[in-house]
Simulated scan of single mutants.
Amino acid sequence: MIGTMEYVDILDHSDIVSDMIQKSDVMEAYEDSLKNVRNDDEAQRLIKAFKDTKGHYEDVQRFGRYHPDYNQIMKEVRSTKREMDMNDKVAAFKIAERNLQKLLDEVSEYIALSVSDDIKAPKDGAALSDGGCGCGSGSSGCGCKAS
């Protein structure tokens, strides 16, 4: 029974931390910037153009530099990504996203180190580095490799 009560106590404390993060200025800035990106027609057009180009890029990547369109698609991917990244709303979203990730990493590290110095915690968004691209598109599961 003690183990169960300790577990419940840990869950209660994690709910408190979660609520604090949800109500933080960093989270508010993230949600505002996400809403701005989603409601901006130009940002959505740029994101769609990047996603379309990214689809061609993935096809070309299967063959690498031996694909006849390799150089062209590489230029297009860089160009559309740069254009998307230069949009004010997308840039603000990417900054807010990085700030939120930094907050989550700091909280994770604090919790991990409070348990033991030997526990590893994510740093610099390392927990998300398994295929995420950071393209700032705001879509879940983007997974593009173009940067």
Rank of each mutant, 00 (worst) to 15 (best):
D40W: 11
S129H: 09
S137M: 01
Y7I: 14
E83Q: 10
D69K: 02
Y57R: 02
D69F: 03
G134T: 04
N36Q: 09
A29P: 00
Y66V: 00
Y7M: 07
D19S: 14
D25F: 15
F50I: 06
N39V: 11
Y57H: 05
S108I: 06
A112H: 07
C133I: 05
D118C: 04
L128C: 08
I95A: 07
R62E: 07
D15E: 14
C133Y: 08
I119W: 09
V17P: 04
E28R: 12
S108F: 10
R45Y: 09
F63Y: 04
K120C: 10
R62W: 06
L46F: 00
V60Y: 00
M86Q: 14
H13R: 12
I119L: 13
I111G: 06
L34K: 07
I95S: 10
G131T: 04
C135E: 02
S129C: 10
L100W: 05
S108E: 06
S139T: 13
E31Y: 13
Y7G: 11
A112Q: 05
R45L: 07
G55D: 06
V107Y: 02
Y110P: 03
C144N: 13
L34I: 01
V37K: 01
S24W: 04
V90H: 00
V37T: 00
L34P: 05
A43K: 02
L128V: 14
L11S: 10
S116Y: 09
S18F: 14
T4E: 15
S24Y: 05
H56R: 09
C144K: 01
H67R: 01
L113P: 03
I111T: 03
E76C: 02
E109N: 15
V77P: 00
P122K: 02
S108W: 11
L113C: 09
Q44A: 03
D105L: 07
K145M: 15
V60A: 00
S18H: 10
Q72A: 12
K102L: 05
D69Y: 03
L11K: 06
E28G: 13
M1E: 04
E97N: 15
D32L: 10
L11H: 09
M1P: 11
A92W: 03
F93Y: 04
D85H: 08
S140T: 12
D59T: 10
A91L: 14
A29Y: 06
D88M: 07
Q22V: 15
A91I: 09
D105Q: 11
D85Q: 07
K51F: 12
E28A: 14
D69A: 05
M20A: 15
R78M: 13
E58Q: 12
F63A: 08
S14F: 10
L128F: 11
G3S: 05
G143N: 12
L128A: 02
E58H: 14
M86Y: 14
A91M: 13
M5Y: 10
L113K: 15
V115E: 11
G3K: 01
V77I: 08
A43M: 04
L113D: 13
D12M: 14
S147F: 15
K89H: 13
Y110F: 15
R98Q: 13
G64M: 01
R62Q: 13
I73L: 08
S147R: 13
I119T: 06
I16P: 09
